[in-house]
Design a protein around this nucleic acid. Sequence first.
RNA 1: GCGCCUGUAGUGAAGGGGUUAUCACAAGAGGUUUCCAACCUCUUGUCCCGGGUUCGAAUCCCGGCGGGCGCACCA
Length: 572
Amino acid sequence: MDDKGRLSRLTSLLRRRGIVLPSFEIYGGVSGLVDYGPVGARIKRRVVNSWIEHWGNVPNVVEIDSPTITPESVLVASGHVGEFNDKMSECKSCGGTFRSDHLLDGLHENPDSLDSSELDDLISKMGVKCPSCGSQDWLGASAMNLMFKTSIGAMGGSRSAFMRPETAQGMFMLYPALYRHFRQRLPFGAMQTGKGYRNEISPRQGMIRLREFNMAELEYFIDPENPPTTDLSRWKRTIHMLPDPDGPHPNEVDMPIEEAFETGIVRHPTVAWFLAMTMQFLEDVGVEPSKVRFRQHASSEMAHYASDCWDCELSGEHGWIEVVGIANRTCHDLESHEKYSKSGLLKGWRNFETPVKESREVLKPEGSVIGPAFRERASDVSTALSELKDIPESLPFTLSLADGTTVEIEEGMVARVLQETVVSGEYFIPHVIEPAFGIDRIIWHILDHNYLELEKEGDEYAILTLEPALAPYDLAVLPLFAKNGMDVMARQVLERVSSISGTIAEIDTSRSIGRRYARADEIGVPWAVTIDHQSLDDGAVTLRRRDDQKQVRVDVDALIESINSNSLQSLF
RNA sequence: GCGCCUGUAGUGAAGGGGUUAUCACAAGAGGUUUCCAACCUCUUGUCCCGGGUUCGAAUCCCGGCGGGCGCACCA
């Protein structure tokens, strides 16, 4: 079959059957925005549900849901505002645009810190040439903001905000509530699915680079000194991995996850577990395992918050595409939010195995002497005394204060005492391992990997071999002819099937039976039930399996029972 | 953002300064047919948007919007 045209035939199918299509099309469309139609929305819902179920099976993982509108201060703390506000300089003569700070690499120790006018001054002073045409004629640097800006409040005095570029910040914002929910015990995780927004410069490749997209993220909070370990041996499948090319294992490998961890290719036990769980999920939703690979980021391409990162990439019509990022974000986010928000609640507590008893000699200030002696500096003196590392042998001595000045501490101002403390544990900032899934990209690859172009009696025949759990309909009910009572019985069967919780069936009565099978196959309906004349007499119907077109005769009651127990396969 | 190509029913395509824009498939109604896109009759529906040139624009020109590829960008 003509492989060049497969992509456009698949795209046509997606539009024609209402799976994925351009948004706002009667107004000309907007690039980077797509709609899921009646069939696609159902597939999407089921993919998202599968994701929630997959991770919901993990103990200590809960789902949350937070706003997409996010105050600017949150994204300043997370680093997104700084990182997202790269300045771009445009060459007047060739029109090429480049990151202004990159143009100044090597000419300034920290070009990232400069504002627009400083960048412009330096670019012209240094005579920076355009990398593509060599001229020195630059337009002023302007911000390239990849976040959608908005404001909270309709009138003046409103707060500056952005549409969230990731759902993760919602989980960090709820950390105190999560910590309480889990009774102060790590590890635990919180997940959320929903929309994210990035104002891409040039969205491309259909639903691969969108401006508004569906994400599914899980933040797993751990104690970095006691990272949870899991039994990796239950995942036997070899995984294709491209380790960090600058690291100690620069070559591509195929091995089970357990071996990858033992040989040190995957550095963190919890990250290894997430890699395995991710592979498992992708297989479960019908991604072709041979078209999956995991690529470890080189330190140079690491996101601003990540200390170790693996991309999961899938191969399809658009090449290898990143669909999941698994990052060890360490304590970056919580630490930064603690600093910016001044909240004291973004911590975990770990008990020592045995409480530490400490006794040390301290100089305890005599308030009644220190106070009158130093007046407004008295509290600084007390602080400095309590922070003294080395207790002087004798008095008087010279004490340095935090502001750099010194005072003389004389006999009578302090008492020499032995202080005993018991420290039973300590606070720490949890580390976070985050798998972030691009749902739209995963759906694209599910469709791509399951779209089969077959030939049937000389005709082209398309079939979507979706996992039954993801199909837009579980079952198609087809009266062989829509008359003589077959249509009535079909509607009765439809009603019985539809009343089964979670089961969605459709009825199709128009045109020939072959055409209706084809229509159902094309959108991935796994089962079709046909009611013929004989069904009216014996109450049995024909059950047809999508993937091999085999059919069996089965009593309606038995059919309903099998659907109920999710065991239709066993009828064959 | 830049450069090249491009936009015609639901889908895929043909055509093109002049009556009512063409074809296939799909879709709807009816007929026929005892299980895999059959057949017959009828039906619905299209020139991306705006401006210009012209007696007349779906066609030519300009701009916008959308799509493809390349460059740049992609936390």
